[in-house]
């Protein structure tokens, strides 16, 4: 019997390796090796020859005011968009989670559409809306205000990017929150009801605390995405840094350093600051989330 099992397992193990090998091949060539090369490049100068230069790229990156501006902008975009996104998505998710909602699936699918739509396409529609004579200024003037320089004023440029980010993310958050809400057993609410807790009380003392890990996860995912934000600023500001560098994100900074300044070493150093922040945030989420479960 032992012999049989052992033989069986080793046979299956060979089958497992055969079946997973195509993935492994692609994984090694397109993810693992590039990750290692990228790490090496961040310590190298890349021209005709590749030469190890130690921390030179990192020093040059940290001395570059544009790099600091890129992180500052990314922080502003996150700080501006995440609270609004979470707030709106919570409202929509809680409403969709009410019993006997007609067309719940339909609403959810439509809200999710931005998450599967080309960001380039979305940004080009907003580019039209932000045109001095576009839809948004038409609405603004209709309400009796002065037209806004959406894409030429540094302050409004950042608002413009935040609006697009909120529009792109609310649906994704809503679907995540809704899944989180559906995991909360209705018994919890029923017993709260019996104890005489009002709906609002229930929302703040049951829904919010139980949804916290999901909210945290959504925030970390969008921060990581936000670091690499490139498509929306690239289209809205037509491959520029925006007025007074207002639209530089870490992604834009990285792209321009690679393919316009053709400084692959420095660009790789920028990339690795992104990796470190992303991994740090993910691990932080993992640890915080893990603690929640341990309770």
């Amino acid at each position: 019997m032992t012999h049989h099992t052992k033989k069986g397992v080793s046979n299956y193990s060979r089958a497992a390796w055969v079946m997973i090998s195509p993935f492994l091949l692609f994984f090694i060539i397109t993810l693992l090796i590039p990750t290692l090369i990228s790490l090496y490049f961040s310590f190298a100068s890349i021209g005709e020859q590749i030469q190890f230069v130690g921390l030179e790229n990192y020093i040059s990156v940290f001395r570059d005011p544009l790099f600091a501006k890129a992180y500052l902008n990314t922080f502003i975009f996150m700080a501006g968009s995440i609270p609004v996104t979470v707030f709106l998505a919570l409202i929509l998710a809680v409403l969709l989670n009410q019993p006997h909602i007609h067309g719940r699936g339909f609403f959810r699918t439509v809200y999710y559409l931005p998450a599967v739509t080309s960001v380039v396409a979305v940004a080009s529609v907003f580019l039209t809306f932000y045109n001095p004579q576009g839809l948004f200024n038409r609405i603004v003037t209709m309400m009796g205000a002065k037209p806004i320089n959406w894409l030429t004023d540094p302050f409004w440029s950042q608002i413009s990017i935040i609006i697009v980010m909120v529009w792109l993310n609310v649906g994704f958050y809503t679907v995540m929150f809704l899944a989180g809400l559906q995991n909360i057993s209705s018994e919890v609410y029923e017993s709260a009801e019996i104890d005489g807790a009002s709906k609002i009380r229930q929302f703040f003392s049951i829904t919010i605390p139980l949804l916290k890990p999901v909210v945290l996860l959504a925030m970390i995912l969008s921060t990581i995405n936000g670091l690499g934000a490139f498509e929306a600023p690239n289209i809205l500001f037509q491959n520029s840094y925006g007025p007074e560098n207002a639209a530089v994100t870490v992604g834009v900074n990285l792209y321009k350093t690679s393919f316009e300044l053709v400084n692959f070493g420095k660009a790789s150093a920028i990339a690795w600051t992104m990796v470190i922040v992303a991994v740090g945030l993910s691990l932080g989420q993992f640890i915080l989330g893990g603690r929640k479960h341990a309770k």
């Binding site: 993810l31 590039p34 690499g228 792209y255 990339a271 990796v275 992303a278």
Partner: peptide
């Protein structure tokens, strides 16, 4: 966890 962006140059 590694952003796709970090891999554009080696890729």
């Amino acid at each position: 966890m590694v952003p796709q962006f970090a891999l554009i140059i080696p890729t």
